[in-house]
């Protein structure tokens, strides 16, 4: 559905996007993740034809965005970072304008009513946009992208500035739309990406440093499987005790996370499952084990680790096969 190859963008002497390649299949929901200024918005602006690339090629459903801009743009709904709204218009009036602008073929009133309902702004349809709150404006921006029911939705930080309830609503909406749309979503809210996107593309300093599923990324980056234990005990005694358990390589204390108990990170020797032994030992000392978890990296930790390194290091850590692997997976699907 979306084909990007060798994409670069230069602003003067600053190379904002460096040789970016990816393919997105129909119906995929992709998360663009990256710190501020990583080039997410620039890539999205190029995909939608707002900016042009310095080098490379973008195809939407087989139509080159430079050579056949009208066909390509007809297939895209774009919600930019700042929703593009004429604040002196009423919501319905504005959506009518967008409908006319996009030369949509569906019957006008039912289509706009449907979009209003879908994003939950039918109750403010006759209010001036400038009188709406940030959350509602964001949703009007969302509605604008949905007019004409385009196959591809490109959403640049769709939940920024919303309250938690609205974030959940928008997230649910994206989840529902993901069933029959191809969606690219950018965010620096990691839980959001984790919640709605299967595949994550991490961008740092204009380059793709990872392109994989969220689980795989976390898995690749986790070192030996460490365990996290929360125990009601005396810190130093327990540290000594845990070290004597068979199969334990090292133990570090994280200190008091919850009052009255201490947290320990326990690293086992390769391949040993030591959970039962730890439980027995703690109980035999008359202490109480409150929790024992896999200390898997969350996407947040993955993200922080990757974007802290420079690109080369990150690629090495992930193994250069990351990108290649996902490509072959896609070919198999086709």
């Amino acid at each position: 559905m979306i084909n990007v190859s060798g994409l670069s963008k230069r602003y003067g002497t600053h190379l904002a996007v460096k040789d970016v390649n990816f393919n997105i299949e129909k119906g995929e929901v992709i998360g663009f993740l990256g710190p501020n200024g990583a080039g997410k918005s620039t890539i999205m602006n190029i995909l939608t034809g707002y900016l042009s690339m310095t080098q490379g090629k973008v195809e939407i459903d087989g139509f080159d965005i430079v050579e056949f801009p009208e066909q390509a743009k007809r297939r895209i709904g774009y919600l930019p970072e700042i929703p593009p709204l004429y604040t002196d218009m009423k919501v319905r009036e504005y959506l009518n304008f967008i409908y006319d602008l996009k030369k949509v073929k569906f019957p006008k009133k039912p289509h706009i009513d449907e979009v209003l309902r879908l994003v939950g702004i039918d109750n403010v349809a006759n209010r001036l946009i400038k009188n709406l709150s940030k959350g509602y404006r964001q949703r009007v921006g969302f509605a604008q992208a949905l007019i004409g029911n385009p196959d591809v939705l490109i959403l640049d930080e769709p939940t920024v500035g919303l309250d938690p309830k609205q974030i959940i609503e928008i997230r649910n909406l994206i989840g529902r739309l993901g069933k029959n749309h191809t969606i690219i979503l950018s965010s620096h809210i990691l839980s959001e990406i984790q919640a709605v996107c299967k595949r994550v593309i991490i961008i740092n300093r204009g380059e793709i440093i990872a392109d994989d599923t969220a689980e795989n990324l976390a898995h690749r980056l986790s070192d030996n499987k460490t365990l996290l234990a929360r125990i009601v005990c005396n810190e130093e005694d327990m540290l000594a005790t845990l070290k004597t358990v068979k199969g334990v390589k090292s133990v570090t204390s994280l200190g008091q996370m919850e009052s009255g108990s201490y947290d320990f990170v326990i690293e086992p020797m390769d391949g040993n499952d030591i959970r039962a032994d730890i439980f027995d030992r703690v109980v035999s000392r008359g202490k109480k084990l409150l929790a024992l978890n896999d200390n898997r990296l969350s996407l947040e930790q993955v993200f922080l680790r990757l974007t802290d390194m420079d690109t080369k290091e990150a690629k090495e850590l992930l193994g250069s096969e990351t990108v290649a692997e996902t490509n072959t997976e896609e070919e198999e699907e086709v």
Partner: peptide, 14 residues
């Protein structure tokens, strides 16, 4: 200034 050009330019119009 209000970034509305993003909606106009990314719409399928010349």
């Amino acid at each position: 200034r209000q970034k509305i050009d993003q909606a106009l330019i990314t719409a399928p119009v010349k």
